[in-house]
Design a protein around this nucleic acid. Structure first.
Length: 132
RNA sequence: CGAGUAGCACAGAUGAUCGCGCCGCAAGGUGAGGAAAGUCCGGGCUAUACAGGGCAGGGUGCCGGAUAACGUCCGGCGGGGGUGACCCCAGGGAAAGUGCAACAGAAAAGAAACCGCCGCGUAAGCGGUAAGGGUGGAAUGGCAGUGUAAGAGACUACCGCAUCGCCGGUAACGGAGAUGGCUGUGUAAACCCCACUCAUAGCAAGACCGGAUAGGGAGCAAUACGGCGGCCCGUCGUGCUUCCGGGUUGGUUGCGUUUUCGAUGUGAAAGCAUCGAAAGGAGCUGCCUGGUAACAGGUAGUCAAGAAAGAUGAUCAUCAGAUACAGAACCCGGCUUAUAGUGUUACUCAUAAA
C-alpha cells in the first residue's frame, strides 16, 4: 500500500495504540462539556482521525452512535481543516444523548478553539454542509 | 363489554440528498438482532501423538419419548397453588455410615414429666400418665369411640403407614384386597451412597507467507529431563533447566452455503461475474404423509453481512402519533435476562340475554 493510495482513503484513521499514545503525550488539547480534542502534527499531507469513547459513556450502541456522529461531522467539514494533523476526539459522558446538531457544534467549537481551521470566518454554525 | 390465562407475529415504512464496508474492470449488487446480550449448557471445527489401566474430580437425577447433542423440547405421573383457563416443583436414596438441628422448650432421637390430670400422703413429696396447655420449622400417626383412678393402638371402625400378592399401565404410578401393628423426626441446593455420563483448550484455535535476529554465563545429566488432560502405574522421546542481554509481534487464510460440471461475458493468463445442472448441509419457508406432540420422511422454493480503531449512518419530507431493549466478530441448537408499542389466535371467570 503506497502513500498515495492511503491518501485516497476517504477518512484515514489513527490505528495503532502507540500512535494514540504519541498524540496524547506530545500533542496539545482542548475541551468543552461534550468532548476532549487532541492534535499533533503528523508530518503527512493529510489528516488522520481517531475517535475514542470509553465504556463509561454507555453501552455498545451508544458508543457506536457517538463515533458515527463525530465522523459525520468531520467528513462534512473536512475541507475546512488544516492538513498534516493527527486529531483525536474523546467523548465525555454528557455526549450520550446528543444529536448530530449538538455534536457538530461542539466539535467545530473545539476545532475553532484550537485554530485547526483554514479560515475562521468560513466555519459553519451547524454541522452539515448545505447546498452552498 | 369487563377481568384474566396461554401462545404466535411484528420490532416503523416510503421518498430525496450526502456518506461507509464487502463483491465487481465497470454498470451494479448487497449490508445487524429477537434477543446480535449474559457466556449458563450442548454440538460442529481446530490443536494437543486421542495406546492402555487405576485413582481423584466435574455434571445429571420421577417415567417414557424426541434430537447430532443437551442441564433443551414433547407427552405423562406425583406433590403444591388457583373458582377456573392454567401455573409452580434440584421430584433418586434418610433402615450403609457420619455430621448438623441455633434460639425457644422439660425434652431435638432409643429419649423426656415444665404446667396439667389421676392415685397415695396432714404436708414436703413419691408414683402413674404423652388426652390437654405451652415452645418450636419439626414433639414419636390423625379422628371418633371403648376402656381407665387418670391415661395410653391397650382395644375397635375409618383415614394414613408398612408388607404381601392381584388387576390396569411400556413405565413413573394408580385401583381394590388381605395381613401387620403403630415400629425408626427433619436435613442429601451437608458429607455421602446408587445409577448414568464427561479429555482439555479455544478462531488471539489453527494453517501458510514474509521480515528481523546474537548470543553469553552457570547448573544437572540416563537413578536425568520432557510429552501422553489433574495424580500414579505404564509408555514414548532425547539433552534439559535457570540467569543476564537482544529482537519480533506484519500480511494472507481460517471467514460464510460447500464442491463439481457446462455455457456466456471479460481477460494474455490465473481468475472473476452471470446463468444453468448435479451432489452435499444439523440453514429458512410452504405443502403432503406418519405421530397426541416434540419430531421424522418426502417434495418444492429459497440460502448475498463477513469488519479488524472494527462498515449499516446523517439531514429533510410524508404517514394520526410514538420508537423500547439494544450492534454480527468462527458457525449452529437451546436456556436465561432486557424490552416502548401494535396486531392476532385459543380458552377461563363474571355480568347480561336466550
Amino acid at each position: 500500500m503506497t502513500e498515495e493510495l492511503r491518501g485516497l482513503h476517504p477518512q484515514p484513521s489513527i490505528k495503532k495504540a502507540a500512535e494514540f499514545r504519541t498524540v496524547y503525550s506530545k500533542g496539545t488539547s482542548a475541551a468543552n462539556h461534550l468532548f476532549v480534542m487532541y492534535k499533533h502534527e503528523n508530518g503527512l499531507d493529510y489528516n488522520r482521525i481517531g475517535i475514542s469513547v470509553s465504556k463509561k459513556v454507555g453501552n455498545s450502541v451508544v458508543r457506536h452512535r457517538i463515533k458515527r456522529l463525530v465522523r459525520e461531522c468531520l467528513r462534512l467539514n473536512g475541507t475546512m481543516f488544516n492538513t498534516g494533523l493527527d486529531i483525536i476526539v474523546i467523548a465525555r459522558g454528557a455526549a450520550k444523548d446528543k444529536g448530530q446538531e449538538d455534536v457538530s457544534k461542539a466539535v467545530m467549537h473545539l476545532a475553532k478553539k484550537m485554530s485547526l481551521l483554514v479560515s475562521v470566518e468560513n466555519a459553519p454554525q451547524n454541522g452539515h454542509l448545505d447546498e452552498a
